[in-house]
Computed example of a mutant assay.
Amino acid sequence: MQHVAWDKSMSVGVEILDDDHRKLLDMFNRLLKAGIAEKDRASLSGLLRGLQEYTTVHFKREEALMEQQGYPGLDAHRAAHRYFIDEVHKLTLDDDDSNEMMLRIDLILLLKEWFIEHIQSVDKQYSPFMAEDAGTTARSTTAH
């Protein structure tokens, strides 16, 4: 699988959320760069933890903005986020006793099939509902 480059087709039109998506895409690309055969289990565990932590921050920010802007698809979007969090959690549990190569493959597939496609299809649906100042509002509420 090749490196995935950020492009305008991934933009949701809210700078802070685009920044979050770029950071998550960077995590995905670091995993790809490390390769599926890397023997350093600690780096894989670190990536899983980092992914869990950052998606939690991002999803809260994104959902708060959608709620603030009155996005009608918020409940379905929250359900999609919960699915992703649950899948990453399952991989984290598998980290203790599974084949590292299979765990890396599962993580790469999850990130590609869910995250990238989620941004390009599901997240795009809320773009028209976001006010131009939504990114500024999000920055001021998350800077604490």
Rank of each mutant, 00 (worst) to 15 (best):
I119E: 04
S9N: 09
A134Y: 14
D26Q: 14
D18I: 10
D123W: 08
V57E: 12
A76K: 09
E15I: 04
Y83S: 13
A37Y: 10
T136V: 15
V4W: 06
G13S: 09
K60A: 15
M66N: 07
K23I: 15
R139V: 09
T141E: 11
T142N: 09
E53M: 12
L32P: 03
K60I: 05
L65N: 00
E53G: 09
W6E: 07
V14M: 06
I85H: 13
L32R: 11
F59V: 02
D20M: 08
M1G: 10
A143N: 08
A138R: 04
W6G: 13
H3Y: 15
K124C: 07
E62D: 14
G73L: 01
I116S: 00
V57N: 05
E113R: 12
L25I: 02
K33V: 02
H89T: 14
Q2C: 04
L51I: 07
E63A: 04
A143Q: 12
L111R: 03
D7Y: 03
H89K: 13
D94H: 11
Q69F: 03
E117I: 01
D97R: 11
T136A: 15
L44Y: 02
H89R: 15
S121V: 15
Q120P: 03
A138P: 02
N99L: 02
V12Y: 06
S127W: 01
H81D: 13
F115C: 10
T137S: 06
H81P: 09
L48R: 01
K60Y: 08
L25S: 07
E87C: 04
L48W: 01
M102Q: 13
R139T: 08
Y71L: 10
E38L: 05
D96K: 08
M27S: 11
T142L: 06
K23L: 14
L24K: 01
W114C: 13
T137G: 01
L74H: 02
R30S: 13
K39V: 06
A5F: 10
A79S: 11
M102F: 08
D97T: 11
T142I: 03
F59E: 11
E113V: 05
F84Y: 14
R22N: 02
V122I: 15
A143H: 09
N29H: 05
D7R: 00
R78D: 06
S9R: 06
S45C: 06
L74V: 13
E100S: 13
K124P: 04
F129W: 13
R22Y: 08
A143M: 10
I16H: 02
T55H: 02
E62I: 01
L91F: 07
F84W: 07
R61I: 03
L93M: 12
M66K: 05
T55P: 07
Y83E: 15
V14C: 10
L109M: 11
M27H: 07
L17R: 00
V12W: 06
A131F: 01
